[in-house]
Design a binder for these strands. Sequence first.
DNA 1: GATGAATGAGAATTCATTCAT
DNA 2: CATGAATGAATTCTCATTCAT
Lengths: 195, 195, 195, 195
Amino acid sequence: MLRRDKPKFKQIIDAAVVVIAENGYHQAQVSKIAKRAGVADGTIYLYFKNKEDILISVFEEKMGSFIEKIEQEIAGISSPLEKLYVLVKKHFESLAADHHLAVVTQLELRQSNKELRHRINDVLKRYLRIIDEIVKEGIEKGEFRRDLDIRLARQMIFGAIDETVTTWVMNEQKYDLVALANPVYELLTKGCASS
Amino acid sequence: MLRRDKPKFKQIIDAAVVVIAENGYHQAQVSKIAKRAGVADGTIYLYFKNKEDILISVFEEKMGSFIEKIEQEIAGISSPLEKLYVLVKKHFESLAADHHLAVVTQLELRQSNKELRHRINDVLKRYLRIIDEIVKEGIEKGEFRRDLDIRLARQMIFGAIDETVTTWVMNEQKYDLVALANPVYELLTKGCASS
Amino acid sequence: MLRRDKPKFKQIIDAAVVVIAENGYHQAQVSKIAKRAGVADGTIYLYFKNKEDILISVFEEKMGSFIEKIEQEIAGISSPLEKLYVLVKKHFESLAADHHLAVVTQLELRQSNKELRHRINDVLKRYLRIIDEIVKEGIEKGEFRRDLDIRLARQMIFGAIDETVTTWVMNEQKYDLVALANPVYELLTKGCASS
Amino acid sequence: MLRRDKPKFKQIIDAAVVVIAENGYHQAQVSKIAKRAGVADGTIYLYFKNKEDILISVFEEKMGSFIEKIEQEIAGISSPLEKLYVLVKKHFESLAADHHLAVVTQLELRQSNKELRHRINDVLKRYLRIIDEIVKEGIEKGEFRRDLDIRLARQMIFGAIDETVTTWVMNEQKYDLVALANPVYELLTKGCASS
DNA sequence: GATGAATGAGAATTCATTCAT
DNA sequence: CATGAATGAATTCTCATTCAT
């Protein structure tokens, strides 16, 4: 039985998200997470190698299902432009639907040390590859400009989406993030310049 | 005499950048910074209130002169599009010219706690306002699309630039960042879509 | 289970008394106390909030049982004069029996900061109230002079006892403190003047 | 020229009393005393060997003139009982007249380390010897009880006076200390017991 | 599998004192 | 005589991890 299918594994992951969101990364002690999950401190170490492993697992689990959802959503779409639109929209929807998770991914987990962030980036790569695919397909199908550097296009797309979400979180999620999907999509596809 | 004009202040700031870049944020002990700066530990506290004050000052000093440089560069330019191009180029040039600083601003200082990051954001705001001005002027002069949401455009521009630099730093600065100024500018202005 | 009933709590308290007596208040580092108590430094903090809490607890524990002992001893005595005599005698006996404790209460704990001394005074108040009761009862029963100011009488009694013990401690406990109980009692009751 | 006759010596002593009274013993840094005295930090060390030397000098200077005053006052008195009364009265008057000094001698200087307190005790000895002389003379002249242990009588007298002043200081000097001279004198001479 | 008491390494900061000017 | 910038030693407390029960 995989650890991720055991109930306590999920309990601890979920507790970690809440504890980090409520207390901040540096105040998210293992004992706090254990208490919130309703298990003993030592029990954590039956499911996770160490604290870092909890944090990575948080990202893997949450980001993983997030990525899967998006992969499914865009699977049946043929137009790369529409795929990009759906990706932006689903990205915003997912984080708008889980405020705790949004705080954790946009603010708290970024305070982790260099190594942890490199490992988080590995998880992210799967997401970035989806964007790469959309861009590549877009070029092939003629919907995207032919002279695009795929990597740079992906960085702009991800950077813009990410910055938009982070600004929204730092503004305490006061406005409607999902409503920004369309204008962000317009910006990404048409750019700033008047044509 | 302002503390920032005293030679030891600069010594310590510069030592801090190197120490943080080489050891990482969490391994940048005050004693290490002092040693590198060639002063006693206690001397640090004649120029800085506490360790956090060193870190904020690093950002203020470096980012401050960075912003000033860009303000001067674009001051004499009349075309907002050209201003945007110069901003991207100077941004890349500045960080490419100081590898230590690039590591510190893109990776290390982001692991600071929430309060420190909020104070860092205050410094950043000045930079974001420059972008806002360019966008606003661009719309007025007809070079930028009329229907742009200024805040979103700024988020895309900053997000794309920042993501590009961060990716470059995480790839250990293996390729030529400055060479990306033009394609990034093209992306930001024309977008991904074929017209 | 109250912390004061746990064996390690007592271990640490007792270690603190010895370490403070032997090294002095300002040289009684937490690590020294831990080592003497045979526990890890961190274990201290499972039983005490901080270092100050150890010191207050030392006083509360030791002074507490000291006060209880005296309360019990005088409970069955009907004559206030005899109560006073027993109080002086027990006070001297208690401190003569524990040289370390005598050094700690008479010399070392008095170097604590104002806040700690105020909290120590709270414990002392219970002792001072016992003296007050003896004086009050003595006046009512006609054994003490009718015109006594209770508070002043208490201050003289406590001041004389305390000064006697402190002088004894500062003279390195070279003479027999308990033997002074009778002459001190005589002084307190009859005064200096020939009648 | 003796250092104690130089104006800066007195300036620094007086500044020390005020700084200690207002900030407490542990917050009375040399730099604070220097600032208050209107001299540079380094100047302190032209007049005092080290910080401890300042504190002892404070006690010597202030207690010295205090003792001299009392010696003069009782010099012309022939009755030992009256001498005792005057001593108590002058003791209370002196401290009631200088609230800062009262706080320093009764509370703050007692937080000093063991060595400093031993040296302070040397200064006190001169005062204690005055009391001894009064008691001895009192016994010889038949005004004091013949069976007195001089040392113990002195400890009671000093202990009672000191405790009375300390209680008054800890109660923030809310009531009239000098008015207590008479009842304290009565207590010391006649004791608590009804005759 | 589950517990939770015990462990112990690691770092920012203060302030008395010096000494070149 | 006077200055004040510079020095550097010294200590509490936290919290991830272990392991006996």
